[in-house]
Nucleic acid binder design. Structure first.
Lengths: 258, 258
DNA sequence: CGCAAGGTTGACTAGTCTCAATCCTTGTGG
DNA sequence: CCACAAGGATTGAGACTAGTCAACCTTGCG
């Protein structure tokens, strides 16, 4: 069931009484289980080419985690850049804002994905990172990573690849924004999310969207009403079933062919 | 098609007579002046923090240049990734293509700028790089760069920064594609080019566009007719003067305020 | 000189946005 | 436990932006 899954990821949720348990729980996690070597997401964010020795050293670098509550910022544009982050639980959006207030969501990040690399070039972040739900991240202090890269060819390679991957990801988003119709954008977005859910061991066919229609719209370059209409259209055409934030992908092939 | 592409790789292509002079000319450049230490673009593409010794080693890595004629590909999507490139003379566009033929131009690269970083993550390029005019590049074999990075903290830092910078550049393009009107896109594009021309010591107010209206459109997410109309509108409003590929920016402030 | 490629402009159309009303879900406080 | 408030989602009608198709113009080059 979807709900069960949600609870599994995210030991706490919203309501007032759980507040404390969220804090407590996160602390527990971070002290109890902060070793990359035993983390279930390890293959997702640490190079699996590291030697046992390197892994140990890497573990030491990534010694702290940080909880970020829904709607809170992990970092903001212009914040001094100190660390990059791996999503440990929950999810984030990153966004850049224009002076006039228009915002563009530049990415959604799920468990195991790395964010914050935008800060390397100017030693300041150029985007905001906001938690879509109560989440936590592993903190990887950049200066330590940098020095370890000098010693570990594997890690250096991984860093460069991760960055390159972000470049490629952004190019395909540019393609989406520059060339696709609203319907195609939504279809592409859903398929992308779907495959990332599968990679994480969840159902690719049925999952919960963590973002609002407006956030999707800001990501896909359209208004929230248009997102909603496209969902309705895809549902009418029998490609998906939606109910609020729950989504079921009925016909992935047709979705890819939109 | 494939054949053409293959020939494009190879400097000895098409028609006879000026072929030779282009070749000869490039050879001359590449033997005479291929040292980064004396290159006028040095500050643009090499970290100026390298020691004399490191610079010498870097010079040895970047020992070859390659001419690319107008319209030819420096690399194509799916080509095995071997090197990154610094534009030595001329200019390039990079683009990603959808199966149905729609293409999105992901960047224009001027002298001193580095391209090819998209290939690091998958060891294959994910985009095409096409020369907008007869151009030449410095070839930086990635495996050599990578090993030198292990020894030179400065170079490693520069590599990571260059990548991060590309990530940031792409985010602002996403903002442009996702949130701006056609007129704003064109205005933003012109101002961006303008400041890059200034950085290179050219007039920021008056320069030649190296790309067609269609290429601009594919970059800015609109049709070539719309680009043309926006140019006409900006001219009517007295913000720019255009005549074919020549452009003069009359009122940069108004352009920024569009 | 003539052709081909690139650029401009106009008329019409399609797709997305805007504004507004209504519905649904979720969390809160009585 | 229920009622209500508030934020999020859906749907419709009309406006407007950019796309399409087509004609024509300009430029560079063989």
């Amino acid at each position: 069931m979807l709900l069960e899954r949600d609870f599994a990821r995210d030991a706490s949720t919203s309501s007032a009484s759980d507040e404390m348990s969220w804090e407590t729980c996160t602390r527990k996690i971070s002290s109890a289980q902060t070793r990359c070597s035993t983390c279930s997401l390890r293959s997702a964010c640490v190079p699996n080419t590291l030697t046992a020795q390197e892994l140990e050293r890497f573990d030491a670098i990534v010694s702290t985690t940080r909880p970020v509550k829904r709607g809170e910022a992990l970092y903001r544009a212009h914040d001094p850049f100190q660390s990059i982050y791996a999503v440990r639980a929950g999810s984030f959006k990153t966004m850049v804002m224009h002076r006039d207030g228009r915002e563009q969501v530049t990415g959604f990040y799920l468990a195991g994905e790395v964010l914050g690399l935008d800060g390397v070039c100017a030693e300041r972040h150029s985007s905001d990172a906001i938690a879509l739900e109560d989440s936590s991240v592993c903190i990887m202090p950049y200066s330590l990573l940098e020095s370890m890269c000098a010693d570990s060819k594997q890690l250096q390679q991984q860093m460069l690849r991760t960055m390159s991957n972000e470049i490629v990801r952004e190019s395909s988003l540019m393609m989406l924004l520059g060339t696709m119709s609203a319907e195609q954008r939504v279809a592409t977005f859903l398929l992308n999310l779907s495959s990332r859910m599968r990679e994480r061991g969840y159902s690719a066919a049925e999952f919960n969207l963590r973002m609002t229609r407006e956030e999707m719209g800001n990501y896909l370059g359209m208004k929230l009403e248009t997102v909603s209409r496209m969902f309705s259209k895809l549902q009418r055409d029998g490609l998906v079933e939606t109910r609020g934030k729950k989504i079921r992908i009925v016909d992935p092939n047709a979705l890819a062919a939109v």
